Amino acid sequence: MNTSARSQTTGHQRLFDRDRFIEDCVSAHRSTGMEAVREVLAEAIRDHRAVLKTLGGPTKAGLDVMHTSPDFTIFAAHWTPQMNLLPHDHMMKALIGIYTGREDNILWRHGEEGIEAYEANCLFEGDIAALPSHAIHSVTNPLQRFTGGIHIYDGDFFATERHQWDPETLAEAPSDGEAIKAMFAAENERLFGRDSN
């Protein structure tokens, strides 16, 4: 039995080892890059129930940061019921693996008059997606319950200047880690009220 895998088997129950998963992702990234990291994520998310049991069910919008460095970021992102994220880019390669709920993506590209939508996909529990560094997407949790996904980036997600687009006018504006935190704060206020933490 391979006990160095992301999930370990104990009897009939598989366990997701958070620390080991982070170590394996960092090691894979250092050795051969995001393709190897994708394999690590795919193996872990294949048993999404084990990931959910270890990480716990989301209870508010936010990020559970697992690892951050100048060249690599891992976090669990939590979307509230029916939460929408406006179109945004990452300026780096990204991997997304859903361990609870669902994430609907609209993919955008630059056109003659700004950005235009050209494709959509749905990520269900156990699904993963890879986004290239030039990707622009908007995200919706269509469910009446929380969605949780592991997000992995080929760079420092929080220190990189990025872009976002107004969901109605599609006007472009700068975005960064602080802008993302503000989105989550607004979403929690919408769901729970001003006095919630």
Rank of each mutant, 00 (worst) to 15 (best):
L170W: 03
D166N: 13
Q164G: 01
F184D: 10
A186H: 14
I128R: 09
N188P: 10
N188K: 12
E187P: 09
R145Q: 14
E161S: 08
Q144I: 11
G149S: 09
A185N: 13
D156G: 08
E161N: 01
I152H: 01
F184P: 06
S133T: 09
E189L: 14
L191Y: 11
F158V: 12
I180N: 07
P132G: 13
A130F: 14
H137W: 03
P174G: 06
A135G: 04
I150S: 10
E178P: 00
L131D: 08
A135L: 00
A135D: 10
E161H: 09
D176C: 13
W165S: 04
D166G: 06
R145T: 15
A129Q: 15
H134L: 09
H137T: 02
A173Y: 09
D127E: 14
S138H: 08
E178N: 03
F192H: 12
E172R: 08
A135F: 00
T147Y: 00
A171Y: 01
H163V: 00
G177R: 10
N188L: 07
D154P: 05
T140A: 12
E168V: 11
S138T: 07
V139M: 10
I150A: 10
H134C: 08
T140K: 06
D156P: 05
E187T: 11
Q144V: 15
G177T: 10
W165R: 02
G149Q: 11
F146M: 07
L143Y: 11
A179C: 10
S138C: 04
D127Q: 14
F192W: 15
T140E: 04
S133K: 07
H151F: 12
G177V: 01
F157G: 01
I150D: 07
P174F: 10
T160W: 03
A182Y: 11
P142M: 07
G177A: 05
Y153A: 03
F146K: 00
F192P: 02
P132W: 06
F192K: 08
R190P: 11
Q144D: 15
I136S: 02
S138Q: 08
A130H: 06
N141M: 04
F184W: 13
Q144T: 15
E189M: 14
A173D: 02
R162D: 04
T140L: 13
T140C: 09
S175C: 11
L131E: 13
H134I: 14
D156M: 03
A130V: 14
